[in-house]
């Protein structure tokens, strides 16, 4: 019984991790259709921000939750201005450019901080479920994933900024004709996506440690989740994370982490064969 509870907790935590690492990409790729291959490196920059700030005596929670989104959001503004802005609508070129950016960021961070693993210890201690011990930080991540999703939903649904963003993504020319400056909306949306990725990096830093190449471990999963999710970026990301995260964690428990990953990929492939436009291409189409 206790074991079942612990397994359930692990499944939820697997789902939460997927949500956290995918949300930034959901905004940038799901909404804006920008294939950002440097998404993993945005996570990495967030992780480094957290670890470096904490190492210099910044309060742990500020280092994990406040600084990473600010820093990576600023990076996002610069990247949008210099790179992405010139390439809207040119998918292949965007891929090449962001891939180059990803390599440059890995190289730059390696040069500055070296290619070794650093990290911070997970805060909050642990608690017991019967005879099992569970890290409180895992639970914290679940709440963080929920809070982040609700925040994104609330911003898109209830704020004028969210409305402008959704309108511009749907039809930039019409939005422009109505007096919105699409350039600015795109820039802000991209920066928001980058900030979400940075926050994700800060959140997972205590679990995975940070290293310049850490992005590669997450980017494939993030893309698979967002693509499987389909057109409605938030609902899609949440449902896809729920499905893929559960399948992968359950198979990891039953067999090994290798088969956990394999199971995740198989489910994604089968789903995309049956629902080529993603989960929300068929179900929940009118959601966000």
């Amino acid at each position: 019984m206790d074991y079942a509870a612990v397994v359930a907790l692990q499944i939820l935590s697997g789902v939460a991790t997927l949500v956290i690492v995918s949300l930034g990409l959901a905004v940038v790729f799901g909404m804006m259709r920008v294939i950002n291959l440097a998404h993993g490196e945005f996570l990495m920059l967030g992780g480094y921000t957290a670890v470096l700030a904490y190492g210099r005596g910044v309060n742990l929670w500020i280092a994990l939750l406040i600084l990473p989104p600010i820093v990576v959001g600023l990076v996002g503004i610069v990247v949008e201005r210099l790179l992405i802005r010139r390439l809207y609508g040119r998918m292949i070129d965007t891929m090449l450019a962001t891939w180059g950016l990803s390599l440059a960021l890995i190289g730059g961070v390696t040069m500055l901080f070296g290619n070794s693993v650093t990290g911070v210890s997970a805060p909050l201690g642990n608690f017991s479920v019967g005879q099992f011990h569970v890290s409180v930080y895992d639970i914290f991540l679940m709440f963080a994933a929920m809070a982040l999703s609700m925040a994104v939903w609330a911003v898109l649904k209830f704020t004028p900024a969210g409305l402008l963003a959704r309108g511009t993504m749907q039809n930039a020319e019409m939005a422009s004709a109505l007096g919105v400056a699409p350039d600015r909306v795109y820039a802000v949306t991209f920066a928001a996506g980058a900030a979400l990725s940075g926050l994700a990096g800060g959140l997972i830093a205590p679990l995975s440690g940070v290293v310049p190449t850490m992005g590669t471990a997450f980017i494939a999963k993030a893309f698979i989740t967002v693509i499987t999710g389909g057109a409605a970026m938030l609902t899609g990301t949440l449902t896809a994370s729920g499905l893929l995260g559960s399948v992968s964690t359950i198979f990891t428990f039953l067999t090994t982490p290798v088969f956990g990953e394999v199971a995740l990929l198989i489910v994604a492939i089968v789903l995309l064969r049956l629902l080529p436009r993603g989960i929300t291409g068929r179900f929940l189409r009118r959601s966000l």
Binding site: Y3, V6, V7, Q10, S13, G14, T17, Q131, F132, H133, D138, L207, S208, G209, M214, T216, A217, T249, T252, F253, T256, P257, V258, G260
Partner: peptide
């Protein structure tokens, strides 16, 4: 005995299995 590819960073399920 369990084996992990060199890029695995999530050991949560393993830790539960060890406890069990």
């Amino acid at each position: 005995t369990e084996f992990f590819p060199l890029d695995v960073t999530n050991f949560g399920p393993l830790i539960s299995k060890i406890q069990a």
